[in-house]
Amino acid sequence: MSNKKDNLVEVRGLTFKFGSRIIFDGIDLDLQRGKVTAIMGPSGTGKTTLLRLIGGQVRPSGGAISVDGHEVARLTRRELFELRKRMGMLFQSGALLTDLSVFDNVAFPLREHSGLPEAMVRDLVLMKLEAVGLRGAQRLMPSELSGGMARRVALARAIALDPMMIMYDEPFTGQDPISMGVLVKLIRDLNEVLGLTSIIVSHDVAETAAIADYIYVLSQGKVVGEGTPDELHHANSEWVRQFMQGMPDGPVPFHYPAADYAQELLSREGRR
């Protein structure tokens, strides 16, 4: 009973179809308040879609997602926007507004929602930028930032309204080792210092395992493994071990399903 109270996000029997393709087929997830939970899985398992479902940008085909006790799909647009003010999301691309400077990007949610006087907005923006180490870059435009810096600015923007949770969409993809290290440290530190709940969607096993408290592994629309990073490394499932250790062949075949190789080479024309 007390366990239930601890969950900030609860996913129950979630199904989601995209056309005739089934992305999720009845998955259950519990994301505990104050923890870093990672959702992992191969590319194309709909991890980003999961974040969009939690953020209410797309509606599930079945099942329910509740965030802080509100069932996301049942909220009106106004209620949903209220909820989103308390959720931060870090997009893979950063999604900075390209016509605004770094400073104005971080100030954007504050100016839109807080109604604070400009002097206070300035102080808050500088504090958030200081937290990600980019106070010195406040006048730059997004086009002048490296990928890692853009993601840190986006992170500063995501925490501008002091949300209760942050969703990270592939935060480590395409980062050099230094920015990767910076991001790993930032995500963990922010979670501790600001008392956030973090959800990381990623397929970078080592980095994610280093900071996650709990990991769910998804594949083909199902949860195929869950546990602490340690438990998963020694999981019984061959599939989970293949994924965690990054082996090219195993239960997940190297080859995309295809007709018999010899037969296809010998046939005169490829048939559809």
């Binding site: 940008q57 209220e82 999301m89 986006a154």
Partner: peptide
């Protein structure tokens, strides 16, 4: 999409 997630329409 980023704006929407910041509760800005």
């Amino acid at each position: 999409s980023g704006m929407e997630m910041m509760a800005v329409d």
